[in-house]
C-alpha cells in the first residue's frame, strides 16, 4: 500500500483561476491533469506539495480543432482522445499511433497530452519508493548529491520517457504556455533541455495549454516507433520519430529524425540534410542515415536494460522506420 501525503485539492473551472492558484501557492503547489505519473511519483515521495491544482475540469484546456492551417489540441485532452480523434488520424496518424502506444488503456483514458509533454524524466534510481531510495542514499535528482548512473556525475541524466513529444517535434509542433503573468508560445523542438532535474523550458507556475501542429503537406510521411520490454504498460527503452517529405519521384525534400528515451532531451539527429536531402531513400542512403544516428546516440545506464543493446537497436529501428514509411501507400503523416 502506497499512501499519499495530505494536500488541498483545488478544482478550478477557469484557466485564470488555475494560474492564480499556481502563483498564490508558489513553491508548494503542482498542477495535476491525469495524474497518471504525478500520483505514483507522490506515492514514492518524489513530490509532496501542499496544494494540487486540477486541470481536467477546465474547458479552455479541451478541444481538438483545425484552425488557421493548424491542428490545435487542448492540453487536457486524454491520450485516448488524441489516439482516436478523426482529425488527428486524418492529418497525423503517426501522432495518433504514438498516443496509442503510451502505457496501457486506462492510463490513456486518464493521462493527457499536456501531461505527456511535461512528463517528469525517469531513472532506475529515481522512480522508486522512499524506502528504496533512502536505502541507496538517495540521488542527485531527489534528496541526495550522488549520481548512481554516472560515477562522479554532477548533472542529472534521467531519461525523457514520453511518447508524443518526439513525433510532435518531427511534425514541427509548438505549445502555447500560460501563466498569471501572460502567455507565450514555443516550438517543441526548443522546449526540452538536457537537464534531467527539470528538462523543459517551463517555469513552475506556467502551464502548457495547447499543442499546435501545422497541417501537413501531402508529401509528408511520418512514423513513430517505440522499443519496450512488453507491448503494453512500459515506458520506452528507445523511441524514434521520423518525418520525411517525398516528392513525386520519391526524392527526399526534407528529413527530421528524433531519438528519445536515451537522455534527458529528445535528440534531433544532425547532419542528415547532407546525407539524405535530394536523394531517394535507397538501402545505401538509409544505411548512411542509420550510421549517422548511431554515432550521435550514447545511451546511459538510466534504464534497467543494457546500454549496449539499446545503442545497437538505434540503427535497427532507423531502418524499420524507413521501411514503415516506404510501405505507406500514400503520403500521410
Amino acid at each position: 500500500m502506497l499512501r499519499l501525503h495530505p494536500y488541498v485539492y483545488h478544482r478550478p473551472r477557469r484557466l485564470d483561476e488555475a494560474l492564480e492558484l499556481l502563483k498564490e501557492h508558489s513553491g508548494d503547489v503542482l498542477p495535476i491533469a491525469g495524474g497518471t505519473d504525478l500520483v505514483p511519483n507522490m506515492k514514492h515521495g518524489l513530490f509532496a506539495p501542499g496544494h494540487l491544482v486540477a486541470l481536467k475540469g477546465i474547458d479552455e484546456l479541451h478541444g481538438i480543432e483545425e484552425r488557421d492551417g493548424e491542428l490545435a489540441i487542448g492540453a487536457a485532452e486524454s491520450l485516448t482522445a488524441v489516439a482516436s480523434h478523426p482529425l488527428v488520424n486524418d492529418h497525423f496518424p503517426a501522432l495518433a499511433h504514438a498516443a496509442s502506444l503510451v502505457a496501457h488503456p486506462m492510463i490513456r483514458n486518464q493521462g493527457t497530452l499536456g501531461g505527456n509533454i511535461c512528463l517528469d524524466t525517469r531513472c532506475t534510481y529515481y522512480n522508486q519508493t522512499h524506502f528504496w531510495r533512502r536505502a541507496l542514499g538517495y540521488c542527485l535528482k531527489k534528496d541526495g548529491d550522488v549520481c548512481h548512473v554516472v560515477a562522479g556525475g554532477t548533472k542529472c541524466v534521467a531519461a525523457h520517457s514520453a511518447d508524443t513529444p518526439p513525433i510532435l517535434m518531427a511534425l514541427d509542433a509548438a505549445v502555447d504556455i500560460a501563466s498569471a503573468d501572460g502567455e507565450r508560445s514555443i516550438k517543441l523542438s526548443d522546449f526540452f533541455t538536457a537537464d534531467g532535474m527539470w528538462n523543459k523550458r517551463l517555469e513552475r507556475h506556467e502551464l502548457v495549454t495547447r499543442v499546435r501542429i501545422p497541417l501537413p503537406s501531402p508529401k509528408l510521411h511520418a512514423t513513430y516507433t517505440k522499443v519496450r520490454e512488453r507491448k503494453s504498460v512500459d515506458f520506452p527503452l528507445l523511441s524514434i520519430a521520423l518525418a520525411v517529405e517525398l516528392d513525386d519521384s520519391g526524392v527526399m525534400d526534407s528529413i527530421s529524425l528524433i531519438v528519445a528515451a536515451l537522455g534527458a532531451k529528445p535528440r534531433v539527429i544532425g547532419g542528415l540534410d547532407k546525407i539524405a536531402v535530394g536523394k531517394k531513400p535507397t538501402d545505401d542512403i538509409v544505411e548512411a542515415v542509420a550510421r549517422q544516428t548511431y554515432r550521435q546516440c550514447n545511451p546511459l545506464d538510466n534504464i534497467i536494460v543494457e546500454i549496449e543493446w539499446r545503442r545497437a537497436m538505434v540503427p535497427v529501428y532507423v531502418r524499420r522506420s524507413f521501411n514503415a514509411i516506404l510501405a505507406e501507400p500514400r503520403a500521410t503523416a
Binding site: Y9, I32, G35, T36, V39, P40, L52, A54, P105, M106, I107, N109, Q110
Partner: peptide, 8 residues
C-alpha cells in the same frame, strides 16, 4: 475503465 488507485 479507470485506475482508481491513482485517481484523486
Amino acid at each position: 475503465p479507470t485506475l482508481s488507485c491513482i485517481l484523486p
